[in-house]
């Protein structure tokens, strides 16, 4: 059971991890991220890299949709912009990978700002629909701007290289992507300790009050779009390096829905929610594959069953969480913690 915690200064009270226990947990988490590669195999490392990329992307979307209340169904297309930026630079310039990644983030941010312009005019569902339109327009560009994207043939990307080490394998890639993910998540968490993050939440909760407190709605909405696109750009760039090749089919509308589903399942408007949702939604298809493998002696064509089952479970998760756990996994996690804090006195 935990009782109170006394703080000496307001700085201490404003800290990201306010108690010793929280610090210990964070340190343990980092330690396990460091140890993970030594106790797992390539398959799990591959998944860990994919999860990390998805965590970055989902966190970005969470800033925009979960915290600022601006629903976007174009997030995957923005990742595509980042991925194509990396791919083009990789094929046409001899720049190091970290510059390519930053350029991807920069270009995506610019595109995101333009795609965010409708948010100044329309809200809610109309904005969501406008982002679907933006997503299709970007898709068109990916297919038809052949001189840059090579159209439907797709484009290959050489693996990144740091200090002579080629990151062409999940077990090397892991050491690049996980630190980036940790930093990106911490940056996002910091944002919501300051006036900028609070302004985002204010716009989501009650935009009229926000404006009488001096928060400029257009400026902050665009800022939120810019940050979300920045995250999408980094995630997309990493995705391009990780996959080694991309084509216009790599970033369909369904992938945007995937990220929206991830933050719904994880919990909108909490940093933890973006993380949990991305992990959960990335691993679920794998779990289903195990399930179908186990059931394969009993069904006719296991190969043909897996994809539809994934689609059904994907939809059922969205519906189920919205109906029964609208605050997502993060809220379930909070309930569990609360149980142990009060244990054994109240349950």
């Amino acid at each position: 059971m935990r009782i109170g915690s006394a703080k000496e200064s307001y700085i201490a009270d404003e800290a990201l991890f306010a108690t010793r226990t929280q610090w210990v947990w964070f340190a343990l988490l980092l330690a396990s991220l460091v140890l993970f590669p030594f106790v797992s195999n390539l398959y799990w490392l591959y998944l860990a890299c994919l999860v990390s990329i998805n965590v970055i992307s989902a966190t970005g979307l969470n800033i925009l949709t979960g915290f600022t209340g601006q629903v976007s169904l174009g997030h995957a297309a923005f990742m595509g912009v980042g991925a194509y930026t990396v791919a083009w630079l990789d094929n046409n310039a001899q720049t190091p990978f970290y510059l390519n990644l930053l350029a991807a983030a920069g270009v995506t941010t610019a595109v995101g700002l333009v795609a965010g312009l409708p948010s100044l005019r329309v809200k809610g569902l109309y904005l969501a629909i406008a982002t679907i339109a933006a997503s299709f327009i970007l898709q068109f560009v990916f297919i038809n701007w052949e001189s840059v994207t090579r159209g439907t043939r797709g484009i290959n990307i050489e693996p990144p290289e740091i200090m002579g080490i080629v990151l062409d394998n999940p077990d090397t890639f892991y050491w690049m992507v996980v630190p980036i993910m940790v930093v990106m998540v911490l940056l996002a968490a910091n944002l919501f300790r300051t006036r900028v993050g609070r302004a985002f939440i204010a716009i989501r909760d009650r935009d009229i009050s926000a404006s009488v407190l001096g928060i400029s709605l257009p400026a902050y909405k665009l800022m939120s779009f810019a940050i979300a696109s920045f995250y999408a750009g980094i995630a997309g760039g990493l995705y391009a390096y990780f996959m080694g090749s991309i084509n216009p089919e790599s970033f369909p509308l369904l992938m945007s829905i995937f990220f929206l589903a991830a933050i719904i399942v994880g919990g909108m408007g909490t940093i933890l929610g973006g993380i949990l949702g991305a992990i959960f939604m990335t691993l679920t298809p794998e779990v289903l594959r195990y399930g179908v493998d186990l059931a394969s002696p009993f069904i006719d064509e296991p190969g043909a069953v897996l994809s539809p089952v994934r689609t059904i479970v994907f939809g059922a998760l969205i519906v189920g969480f919205l109906l029964f756990e609208p605050h997502g996994l993060a809220e379930i996690w909070r309930r569990i913690r609360r149980f142990f804090h009060l244990w054994p006195f109240r349950t």
């Binding site: 910091n190 300051t194 001096g214």
Partner: peptide
């Protein structure tokens, strides 16, 4: 704290 928004200056980069 949101009330004090207009009196504060922190921008996105230093915030993050």
């Amino acid at each position: 704290k949101l009330g004090a928004h207009v009196r504060m200056r922190t921008g996105v980069f230093s915030a993050m």
